[in-house]
Simulated assay, not measured.
Amino acid sequence: MHPQPNRRTTHAYGTPKNLLVYDRWGASGRPVVLLHGLFYDRTMWWPVAADLGGSCTAVAVDLPGHGDSARRDEYCLDRLTHDLAMLLSRLDLRRAPILVGHAEAARVAETFAAKYAVHSVITVAGAGLDDVPEAYRQFAVARPDQELADAYRERLLPRQTTATLQVDLGDSFPHLRDPAAFAALLRNVR
């Protein structure tokens, strides 16, 4: 009998006004929380999360107003990080997570790390699909929304300096350029 591939399960946390939808792969190992950038959704992490699921617990979250997560009347970074912390505590992960923030979500990851225990924060850039293989470009489809952009930029995205354990990969979409290599990098974060 051959081992089964890691399966993705989809879940929701919160009330209709603060609903966060997320996918999960695996149930053991270091937790890795994957946060997409503005206009994307959790599906951008599927290729790398599937590779992580055998040795890590991968959790890809739709940020508010993206994918299947509810829009909010007000976007507040403190509230979002609190909701994310409540979601993660519900998952009973037992270890501090690695947070991966894509593009604008780097700010969310940094703010979370300033308030809650994390193993490390990894940030990746979000522009340019030139080096991404054609098969993976379907996972990086931006869905621009001016109202959402204004709400996020006004309340969630102003950069501040924070003291976090951080690795800045800088490259655009490294998790889609080579999902297996990116998963190996995450498995080897010390």
Rank of each mutant, 00 (worst) to 15 (best):
Y13E: 10
Q146V: 12
L186F: 01
E104S: 15
T43W: 05
V48D: 00
L185G: 01
F39M: 07
T123C: 06
G37I: 15
W46F: 04
A58P: 00
E134Q: 13
A49I: 09
R24V: 15
L52Q: 04
S120M: 04
N188Q: 11
P47Y: 10
V33R: 02
P179S: 15
A181G: 10
L52W: 07
R94W: 07
A27L: 02
D130T: 13
R153Q: 11
P144A: 07
D68V: 03
V21L: 05
H102Y: 09
M1W: 11
P47E: 14
I98H: 00
S69W: 11
L84K: 02
K17C: 11
R8H: 09
G53S: 05
D83A: 06
L20T: 14
C56M: 05
T57C: 01
I122M: 05
H66I: 14
W45N: 01
L185F: 15
Y136V: 07
A85E: 14
L88Y: 01
A149P: 00
R95W: 05
R143E: 13
R159F: 05
L148E: 08
P31C: 10
A163Y: 09
H102E: 14
G67S: 09
L87E: 09
A184E: 15
G14F: 12
G26V: 14
L35E: 08
P47M: 12
S69D: 13
D68I: 02
C76Q: 11
L20C: 10
R24S: 13
A183M: 05
Q166G: 01
A103H: 12
R94I: 00
Y22G: 03
T123Y: 00
A140C: 04
A142D: 05
N6V: 15
A117H: 09
A96N: 12
D51Y: 02
L156R: 07
R190F: 03
N188S: 14
N18I: 11
V141W: 12
R95I: 08
D73Y: 10
M1G: 13
F39P: 00
W45C: 01
G53K: 07
S120G: 10
S28E: 15
P144E: 15
L87I: 08
I122F: 06
R8N: 08
F139E: 02
A183H: 05
A27N: 10
G126T: 09
A184P: 01
V121Q: 09
D168Q: 11
L185Q: 04
P133D: 08
L185V: 08
E134D: 10
G26Y: 04
A180W: 02
L169S: 04
T9C: 05
Y116N: 12
P174C: 11
T81S: 08
F39V: 10
E154V: 09
S55Q: 03
G67Y: 09
A49M: 04
R177K: 13
A151H: 09
V132K: 07
A50C: 01
R159A: 15
A140T: 09
F139G: 10
A12K: 00
A184V: 10
A49D: 06
P179G: 13
Q4G: 11
V189N: 02
T162N: 01
D168P: 01
A49H: 03
A49F: 03
P144L: 14
D171F: 04
A184S: 07
Q138A: 11
T10G: 02
R94Q: 13
Q4K: 05
A181L: 13
H82G: 12
V124N: 03
L157R: 04
W46D: 03
P5M: 05
